[in-house]
Computed example of a mutant assay.
Amino acid sequence: MSDATSAAKAAATQARHQLADTLDELEDKFNVPKRTGELVEKAKVAYKKNPVPWIVGGAAVAIVAVGLVAWAIFGGDD
């Protein structure tokens, strides 16, 4: 084999490996169950570190939900 053929095969092999690595990275990045699990773990750690903002946020959501239900029940049908 000539040096040009060997170099072309080596370049093709290297390009194939780079493409495989890129596809693996993309697959990992768009893996929704894995990303969801990571987000849940981050939330758990943040809650354990400081639960006050989570409690305040939950209370705010509950107040808004109760307000919307009350508005729907007691609001006029103008």
Rank of each mutant, 00 (worst) to 15 (best):
W71N: 14
D21N: 14
I55N: 08
I63C: 05
A7D: 15
D78A: 13
Y47Q: 07
Q14L: 11
K34D: 07
V40D: 01
V32I: 14
A20N: 14
A43S: 10
L23S: 02
V69L: 12
K49E: 15
K34N: 10
A70C: 07
A60W: 01
K34I: 06
A12M: 02
A72D: 10
A59M: 11
L19N: 10
V66N: 00
R16I: 05
E41I: 09
K9H: 04
F30G: 05
A7K: 12
A46G: 01
D3F: 04
T22Q: 15
P51V: 08
A43L: 10
V32K: 10
Q14S: 08
K29R: 14
A11Y: 01
W71E: 13
P33D: 08
S6E: 13
S6W: 06
E38A: 08
P53Y: 09
Q14D: 11
A46F: 00
G67T: 09
V56E: 10
A72R: 13
Y47V: 10
V61M: 07
N31K: 05
K44E: 14
A65V: 12
T36Y: 04
E41L: 13
K34V: 07
E27D: 15
R16C: 01
T5W: 05
D21G: 13
V56K: 07
L39E: 13
T5G: 00
K9M: 12
A20Y: 10
H17W: 08
A20T: 12
V61Y: 04
A46K: 03
T36H: 03
D24V: 08
V64A: 13
I55F: 11
A11H: 01
K34C: 02
V61I: 11
D21E: 15
I63D: 01
V32D: 11
A12Y: 01
D24T: 01
G37Q: 07
